[in-house]
């Protein structure tokens, strides 16, 4: 594509410079630093870092606590993604029928996106608290049935529900936009051929929504790995006995509480690789995004 251009490259350099400097300072340098820390070990009495090769990674991967954290992260990713994507898809496809009250439904599904993760975390921690409100009542009816403070599985369920609840709004927005970009004429043609509403959903709308679906799926999985800190920190702080110690939370703990920079950096590198792999999958689907026109 040929475009009309300006020739003054000095101005271009000045315009681009601020962002390049800030990206170098807060993105590339820290990422390089993480790599450096991951392959070195700080001397206990100062004197800089010594090269240790893959020792940090070996230590991490030989640590059963780390594998437990990976497992917990996977459970959280699958649980929250399934819930959030499934619910958002169902709601979007029915909301897209645009019956009366459409606007109310739409705003009702969208607004939770605005809430900060710690606020969601606190709200759900209260709702699921065994010592207050509804769950306390349930506990009185059926003693010892609900106690996420001691039961790891229940704590995980609680975190998954809060994480999914927060994510539904985001997914809903994307699904609705995807559905509305399907040309009306296709659906009308289906109706002319005698396909009823549900049939059209199944055979026209859902297949055409596939690119959006995969995009949303990957974003949800990536977010569950990186964006879950606020919810975990306010709800369970990784407990009880590390049952909700997600990877991103463990990095934070090892790095800032345990002051083990090399170990935290090695974990960061592994998480980075995971996120990069997921992003590549995502771009494949973005490139293949079907254009309906």
């Amino acid at each position: 594509m040929r475009r009309a251009y300006y020739k003054n490259n000095w101005i271009a350099a000045l315009l681009v410079a601020p962002q390049l400097i800030i990206v170098f300072t807060f993105f590339y340098f820290p990422t390089a630093q993480a790599l450096y820390w991951a392959f070195t070990l700080e001397q206990p009495w100062g004197g800089g870092n010594t090269w240790v090769g893959f020792d940090n990674f070996k230590a991490i991967l030989g640590d059963s606590l780390y594998w437990a954290s990976i497992w917990v992260s996977i459970v959280y990713a699958i649980g929250s993604t399934t819930l959030a994507v499934g619910m958002a898809l169902t709601l979007a496809i029915f909301a897209d029928r645009q019956l009366s009250g459409y606007k109310v439904y739409k705003i009702g599904m969208i607004w939770p996106y605005a809430i900060a993760a710690p606020a969601v975390g606190l709200a759900f921690r209260f709702i699921f608290s065994p010592g207050a409100g509804i769950m306390m009542f349930v506990n009185q009816m059926f003693p010892e049935i609900w106690n996420p403070v001691e039961n790891g599985n229940q704590a995980m369920a609680m975190v998954i529900i809060a994480g999914a609840w927060k994510q539904v709004a985001y997914n809903f927005i994307f699904f609705l936009a995807g559905l509305q970009s399907i040309p009306r004429s296709l659906i009308e043609a289906g109706a002319m051929d005698g396909a009823r509403v549900l049939r059209r959903m199944r055979d026209i709308q859902l297949p055409l929504l596939a690119p959006t679906f995969f995009f949303v799926l990957v974003i949800n999985i990536t977010d569950s790995f990186t964006d879950s800190f606020g919810i975990v920190d306010t709800m369970t702080a990784g407990g009880p006995s590390r049952a909700t110690n997600l990877m991103v939370y463990k990095i934070f703990n090892d790095g800032f509480q345990g002051l083990d920079y090399s170990g935290a950096a090695a974990q960061s590198i592994i998480l980075m690789l995971l996120v990069i792999a997921l992003t590549f999958v995502q771009f494949r689907y973005i490139e293949r995004k079907v254009h309906y026109t």
């Binding site: 993105f27 340098f29 820290p30 990186t226 964006d227 790095g255 960061s268 980075m272 996120v275 990069i276």
Partner: peptide, 9 residues
């Protein structure tokens, strides 16, 4: 790479 992933450095 979101900020959370490279938080320590």
């Amino acid at each position: 790479l979101p900020l959370e992933v490279r938080i320590v450095p």
